[in-house]
Amino acid sequence: MTWALTRKLLRDVRVAWIVVATLTFLFQILWARVTSRVTTQILTALQGAGVSLEVLQEVLLGKEFLGQMVQAILGGEQIRLDRPDNFMSISYVHPLPLTILGIFAIGRAANAIAGEIDRGTMELLLAQPIRRTQVIVAHLVVDAIVFPALCLVLWLGTYCGTWWMGLQALGNQRVDPLHFLPALMCVFGLLFAHSGVTMWISSLGRHRPRVWGWAITIFLCMFLLNVLGQIWEEPLGWIRPYTVHYHYLPQCMILHDDWYGSANAWLHLLVLLGVGAIGYLFAWVTFCRRDLPAPL
């Protein structure tokens, strides 16, 4: 029974998934192009014009100048602009793909309960002999299929982009797409956190647009608080650990071969997965106890 429901949910999500997967894939291709242009052409041209790489690095990424702001938006790692793998890693923390992926996860979860109630189809579904728990489990299974598949497409985009732009054949500067694979766990964790929290809000609501609104507001606030906390460590730095974006550290996994030896990296990943799991748990408890309102 759960499988029949899961298949139906997968069918429902396929169009949105294809659109998001295509956009994510294309963004990786585009970013590989940007990486190629910046690292092999623009920086060379600037150096030819007398601008040293160190000065550029200091102005863009140094703490004295734009560094904090740029790093806050493009990831927290100390990256080197002249290294293609460093520059390519920005695509995993760039706000554009994160927004696309986040909206997908929020939209799906908002649709899951509040959307069904809003449309009036939850009544049709729960008139059949299925447990409310099965509805939540079916959505969890869909997340467990759809999100990893999206992550895989993201990585395929990285692979194809870096191959197409010749970044995999740059000698000691080469970009190794395999280094990007562990970061997919972070991407999955972030998507799952978005989905779990939104699922909880969805289980409380009956209007899909309101759930969308609340979830987007919450995650946008988290994103902004994380950015502001990076820029002004005093007095806002303390708030960052309470945002999911603080725990989203894919660059750490991409750029450090020994990341898996760091307990911190695992801890951040666990926080993301934990937020998603707790969201789902709360959604399950709430949904199983609540009245199902009549469709408006």
């Binding site: 029974m1 029949a4 429901l5 139906k8 069918r11 429902d12 449309r119 009036g120 189809t121 009544e123 049709l124 579904l125 008139a127 059949q128 002999p129 299925i130 009549a294 469709p295």
Partner: peptide
């Protein structure tokens, strides 16, 4: 059960809906 306010999965055909709900049962 036949609900008073009838809302169906509009992305399905009639036979798909009958098949889906029958599978749940």
């Amino acid at each position: 059960y036949l609900p008073g306010e009838l809302r169906l999965y509009e992305n399905m055909t009639g036979v798909q809906l009958i098949d889906f709900l029958s599978r749940l049962r």
